[in-house]
Structures are given as structure tokens and as C-alpha cells.
């Protein structure tokens, strides 16, 4: 059964349609990453589900229709990029906030807070002043606070956005693990696909307030429906016809036999253990006049190389789009 069911959700602010008929399903205990360029309505989708902006459409959480409920009755958890920790409360009181609201006794709340802080790796920091926390610590407190009342749905809006790369990777893994073990259903807004891949089972891509893709990371990557999606996901070789995976292009020495095309190296960069080449071809190949390829060998700009292209690997876009 589905945990969250959103149908035809629209948000209009000052004659401006921010969300246009968004529908989505979130399975029990699954995590969906919401991706999209800035201004595509990612945060608004979260804010509409949370009840911060008025929206039309259906929002069903579990077996409850929550569209007309005020935020505090929706039973959701929220995490912001800015953490939004309550500055006047210490770590423990921040985490206990939602528990107190749901009527848990002080004693029970204290136990649960200690347990949660232990889980997020902040045991012993209960009495700390939130202003003294590092970015990573603040993020963990925010997570513990959001999870404490065991929300039916957790929504995270760029939760790791303010952290540095290394910490982000580390926390993303921790977060994924925590969401999995606690069986929490979550919507995860991010602009970072790697992070999305680590945390989420499924991706949802928004463009101009509309859902343009929904599926597993692999599905969307291998078979993007439109050129826009392919480019948004970071495919290098995208033409009007379709998308050619990087692995479909092999680079050989221009003197070696078997080359289908001879190309000129425009730029070469050493990234993630191999050379990434930007190549110019004299005649377009599968509609591409520039091709990106990977190579273990170094070729300097201006060098001529031979290319072997597996044309069968081309994924053609659905002509209906």
C-alpha cells in the first residue's frame, strides 16, 4: 500500500502557477528524492504537503486525507537546510519538542531523547547550547528532532546543503541507513544526484512545477524520456535523437585500425581516475557534433584520435514528448 498519495496538486501564488497538477505515490517505507533545477517547485511541493502554502488537490497520508488539516495535525516531520534549531532551547529540549506536543511525559521524553541522540551519534551532548554546535552536529540534532515523534512522513529540504562535500557524503550514508532501519517514509529534496542515489529508492524530477519523470535512479538514467531530462541528469552526449552513454564510445589511437571516425581533442581533464575528453568530429555522429568520451590514456588538446561508437547503445527519446 502507498504511504503518501498526492493527486493533482497545484499551487498558485500571485497569478503564478508554482505547482501544476503534481501527482505522486510514495510506497510504505520508501524514500523518494525530489530533483529539479532551482525554481522548479521542489520546495513548494514540500511546503504544500506540509501545509505551509495553500494548494488545491488531494494529499492522502496513510488512510487520512490531510489536505485540509493545519500543519500541526498532519503528522509529518521536517528538516531544513538551515536546520532551524530553536535557539532558546538546548539540544535535548529541541529533540523533545515534538514529543512534548504529542503528550509524552517528561520522563518518557527524556528516555526517547537520549536514545535518539545515541542513534545519531550525539550521546552526551544533551545539555549543549545549540549555538555551539558544528554544522554536522546541528544537522544530526535536526534529524533526531524530526524523527522523535515518529512522523508518518519525513520531508527533508536540502538537509545537507550547507555542509562540505566530505561530511555530506558521510552523513548521506548515515541518513540512508537510519531511514532504512527506522522504516521511515521520506521525501528528500536535493539538487545533488549522488546524494539522491545514496539516500533514495526512487527519483522524482520536477520542471516548471510539473513532474517530468518518476522512477528508479537506474531507470531514469538509462532511459531518460526527454532531452531535457537527459541533460538535467548530466548525460554528456545528448542530441535531439537520443542519448549516447559514455561507455558506448571507445577511444583509440588515430593510427590504429578500426576507427569509425577521426576526432580532434578539444579539452582533456583527469577526473575520477580516467581522462575525460571533449572531442570535435568532422561530421555529426548520431546527431552529435561534439562527443565526450573516457580514456585511460592521455591525449592533449589538438591531438587526433580514432573513435569506435556502439550506435546500438543509443537510447532514443520517446517521440511523443
Amino acid at each position: 500500500m502507498s504511504r503518501l498519495h498526492v493527486a493533482d496538486l497545484s499551487v498558485q501564488i500571485d497569478d503564478h502557477l508554482i505547482l501544476n497538477g503534481v501527482s505522486l505515490e510514495l510506497a510504505e517505507s520508501s524514500v523518494v528524492a525530489v530533483l529539479g533545477p532551482s525554481g522548479s517547485g521542489k520546495s513548494t511541493l514540500l511546503r504544500a504537503i506540509a501545509g505551509f502554502v495553500s494548494a488545491s488537490g488531494r494529499i492522502q497520508l496513510g488512510d487520512r486525507d490531510i489536505a485540509d488539516l493545519p500543519t500541526h495535525k498532519r503528522n509529518i516531520g521536517l528538516m531544513f537546510q538551515s536546520h532551524a534549531l530553536f535557539p532558546h532551547l538546548d539540544v535535548a529540549d529541541n529533540v523533545a519538542f515534538g514529543l512534548v506536543e504529542s503528550g509524552v511525559t517528561r520522563a518518557d521524553a527524556a528516555l526517547r531523547v537520549a536514545e535518539l541522540l545515541e542513534t545519531v551519534g550525539l550521546g552526551g551532548m544533551a545539555q549543549r547550547d545549540v549555538a555551539s554546535l558544528s554544522g554536522g552536529e546541528a544537522q544530526r540534532v535536526a534529524l533526531a528532532r524530526a524523527l522523535a515523534p515518529q512522523p508518518a512522513l519525513l520531508m527533508l529540504d536540502e538537509p545537507l546543503g550547507s555542509l562540505d562535500r566530505r561530511l555530506r557524503d558521510e552523513l548521506a550514508l548515515e541518513l540512508a541507513e537510519l531511514l532504512r532501519t527506522s522504516g521511515t517514509s521520506a521525501l528528500y529534496v536535493t539538487h545533488d544526484q549522488e546524494e539522491a542515489a545514496v539516500v533514495a529508492n526512487d527519483l522524482l524530477i520536477l520542471e516548471s512545477g510539473e513532474v517530468v519523470a518518476f522512477g528508479t535512479t537506474e531507470q531514469l538514467w538509462r532511459t531518460p524520456a526527454t532531452r531535457w531530462i537527459a541533460e538535467f541528469l548530466g548525460h554528456a552526449n545528448v542530441s535531439t535523437d537520443g542519448v549516447l552513454p559514455l561507455g558506448a564510445v571507445s577511444v583509440i589511437d588515430s593510427s590504429e585500425p578500426g576507427a569509425q571516425v577521426v576526432a580532434t581533442v578539444q579539452r582533456s581533464l583527469f577526473v575520477d581516475g580516467s581522462w575525460r575528453l571533449e572531442l570535435a568530429v568532422p561530421e555529426p555522429v548520431l546527431g552529435l557534433s561534439r562527443i565526450e568520451a573516457r580514456s585511460n590514456r592521455r591525449f592533449d588538446p589538438g591531438a587526433h584520435v580514432g573513435l569506435i561508437v556502439d550506435t546500438g547503445a543509443l537510447h532514443r527519446f520517446d517521440p511523443r514528448h
Binding site: 493545519p70 500541526h72 495535525k73 531544513f80 532551524a84 530553536f86 519538542f97 515534538g98 524530526a146 520531508m155
Partner: peptide
């Protein structure tokens, strides 16, 4: 920061509780 109020709302605090526990302090 309006997000403080929003965070409190998400944690189940109604308008009056939010005023008492967040805004007022």
C-alpha cells in the same frame, strides 16, 4: 526565521502552542 515556526508546526504544535513555546521566547 519563519522556519522555526514551521518546524514547530511540523512537530505538532498548534498556533497557540507555537506562540507560547517558540515565538514568545
Amino acid at each position: 526565521d519563519p522556519r522555526l515556526d514551521e518546524a514547530a508546526a511540523a512537530l505538532g504544535a498548534g498556533p497557540i502552542r507555537r506562540f507560547r513555546r517558540i515565538t514568545l521566547p
